[in-house]
Simulated scan of single mutants.
Amino acid sequence: MEHTVTTLPAARQSGCPFDPPKELIEAREQSPISRYPFPDGHQGWLVTGYDLGRSVLADPRFSSRRELMSHHPTIDYGGIEVPPAPPGEFLLMDEPQHSRYRKPLVGKFTVRRMRLLTERVEQITADHLDAMEKAGPTADLVTAFAKPIPAIVICELLGVPYEDRGSFQDNIDKFLGGEVGDEELMAAYTATQQYLAELVVAKRAHPTDDVLSDLLDSDLTDEELQGMALILLSAGFDTTANMLALGTFALLQNPEQLAALRADPALTDPAVEELLRYLTVAKTFLRTALEDVELGGHTVKAGTTVILSYNTANRDPERFADPHVLDLRRRDGGHLAFGHGIHQCLGQQLARVELRVALPALVNRFPTLRLAVPAEEVALRPETADIYGVKSLPVTWDL
């Protein structure tokens, strides 16, 4: 018997800011795969289980191509034909185009290279903690800490001038935050594209020591470099910024786990992995079947769009014991917070370095850190946002 989910994005339960929407949890309890009728009438599927989600991500019969994603979970495009992804935006491409753009970047984001960045991340973090302490004892953790650290890191990696960071942050917020109208969203996206086009031209004239300049010797065109930079800037900033803020919120709401992290530095790595699993800020992705595929006892017809729910997959009791419990000592890894397969997040090691450095530094610098408002008053991003998180996180501490 087919189970059907009819409403996306589903709202999170009041008082449960870290849990996936109740409707999606209940759907996974019924079946790891459900029918989903798209607003334009297309009959698609919603995958909420871990094993099925992972299998789709590893299966080349499911495509990431943007031009095949004409069925939006919440919008009826009215039959408008969606164009292919712009050159360089490889997240929305299949092989071999995907590898053409990803392969030149793989060596720039290895575990070893990202670990070499640790000292710089520590300095950036310390600078912002110093500023918080000087301006305190209250702060909005989002603007004082969570956003600027990953913004500075990714801007330095790509050679974006420091003085341009503010406008870049604002525009990324607008087209990923889920809270502005279509016109303002497109204006922010266009402004970012224009800025990156100018940046590539500037790098060609005067290369510097950064990833973008390193790619200038390849056969990539300016337009392709621009698209690649957009992917790296947006993914390298917004996801980590929201993990830092939402992760701090989750720790403050779980004081025993927070105390354990403060007491045992060896918990840092498993704590970061557990927060990634538990929060899963990148909630959903789409794939389209290129041919008929048997999935979870159902036939997904060629041309059918499948929604992958990462956050319910990472709360699947078939894969994780007590999945709704935040347990920093958890050892059953393998979460899907960074995806899986050929599109697995290129910058995952960078994100890990930033989280491993910044979160312990914050909670150890301020032993009395706590929310400055009741938890239910913390402003959350809407479910329409591409990346989930908090809009602001007022905190305070004792002098």
Rank of each mutant, 00 (worst) to 15 (best):
A302R: 13
H72E: 05
A260T: 10
G53Q: 01
V357S: 00
F38W: 13
Q349A: 14
Q344H: 07
P84F: 10
I387E: 00
A302C: 09
P207A: 12
K391R: 15
R331C: 11
L346A: 07
G236T: 06
T6Y: 06
T221H: 05
A135I: 13
E183S: 11
M93R: 03
E119F: 11
T110C: 14
P270E: 00
Y101M: 10
D173N: 11
G49A: 05
D51W: 07
E156N: 12
P148Y: 15
I172H: 01
I152L: 13
F237T: 08
D209T: 14
V180N: 06
D327M: 01
E23D: 14
A151S: 15
Y36I: 08
S167D: 14
A372N: 13
S218C: 13
T6L: 11
R102D: 05
L252Q: 05
R65S: 07
L105E: 03
A263G: 14
T118M: 15
S34N: 05
D386T: 07
A271C: 12
R331Y: 05
D94G: 06
L216C: 05
V56A: 05
I25L: 15
L275M: 13
L157M: 14
V281T: 07
E2I: 04
L371T: 13
P255H: 13
E183Q: 12
V56M: 08
H72T: 00
R102N: 07
G88T: 04
S14H: 15
A313Y: 03
L92E: 05
D19E: 11
L328M: 08
T118W: 12
P317K: 11
F237W: 04
Y36T: 07
D217W: 08
L230P: 00
P255I: 14
S64N: 10
T138E: 15
P374M: 00
D51H: 15
P255F: 14
T125Y: 07
A375F: 09
D222G: 11
H340F: 10
Q169M: 15
G49K: 03
R319G: 08
V373C: 09
T239I: 12
M93T: 01
D76T: 09
D59G: 03
G236N: 06
L290P: 00
T7Y: 06
D164K: 12
P137K: 15
G88A: 06
A131I: 04
L91G: 02
G236E: 06
R356I: 03
K103A: 10
L261R: 00
H42T: 11
T48G: 08
M228S: 00
C345D: 04
D170P: 03
L267G: 03
D164R: 10
P394R: 06
K203Q: 11
V47K: 00
Q13M: 14
G389I: 03
R115F: 03
L199F: 14
S31L: 07
L246A: 12
L261T: 01
G303D: 14
F175C: 10
T368Y: 02
P39A: 01
T7W: 04
R277K: 14
L244H: 04
E26P: 02
L185V: 04
L212G: 02
D264A: 04
D222W: 01
A85S: 06
K147P: 04
A250F: 06
